[in-house]
Amino acid sequence: MFDIDSPFTMVVAIVLIAVGAGVIQNWIKLKHNQESAGSAEDVDALKREVRDLRERVRTLEKIVTDPDERLSRELRDL
């Protein structure tokens, strides 16, 4: 039924080899990306930095959107 010399068997073998190679390639890329993703400490440091930057943006938005009188009063108070 499945003779090694038949064209159908060769096509199936080629497809299986191609799909298998794609799966292996994706697995290798995934492992590489996981290794280069960084440690939990790096992630925590980035989260702290984002939180600090958001606070700075809030302060700048407050300064930009406040009326001139209040802004100049707060600057004098500093």
Rank of each mutant, 00 (worst) to 15 (best):
H32V: 12
R76K: 14
S36A: 12
V15F: 00
I4L: 11
I17T: 13
E55N: 06
W27Q: 12
P67G: 10
T9L: 11
E55L: 06
P7E: 15
I28T: 06
I4D: 12
V23M: 06
E69N: 11
V19P: 02
W27P: 00
L78R: 10
V43H: 08
R56W: 02
D77I: 04
V50G: 01
E41S: 13
Q34R: 15
R73M: 11
I24G: 09
R54C: 02
A21G: 06
V11M: 13
I28D: 01
G22I: 03
S72P: 00
S39F: 04
R54H: 07
D66S: 15
R70L: 11
D77N: 11
A37S: 10
K62L: 14
V19H: 02
L60Y: 02
I4A: 15
D77A: 15
L60D: 01
K47T: 10
D77L: 11
R51S: 12
A40E: 13
L53E: 07
G38E: 06
L16M: 14
D3I: 14
D42G: 01
H32R: 10
M10F: 03
A18F: 11
N26I: 09
P67N: 12
M10V: 06
R51C: 12
Q34Y: 03
A40W: 08
T9I: 11
R73H: 12
H32C: 05
T65E: 03
A40G: 04
I28H: 04
V57H: 02
S36P: 00
G22L: 10
N33I: 06
T9N: 08
E35H: 03
E41W: 03
E41T: 09
T59D: 12
V43Y: 04
I63P: 00
T65N: 06
H32F: 09
D44M: 14
N33E: 15
M10S: 09
V64A: 15
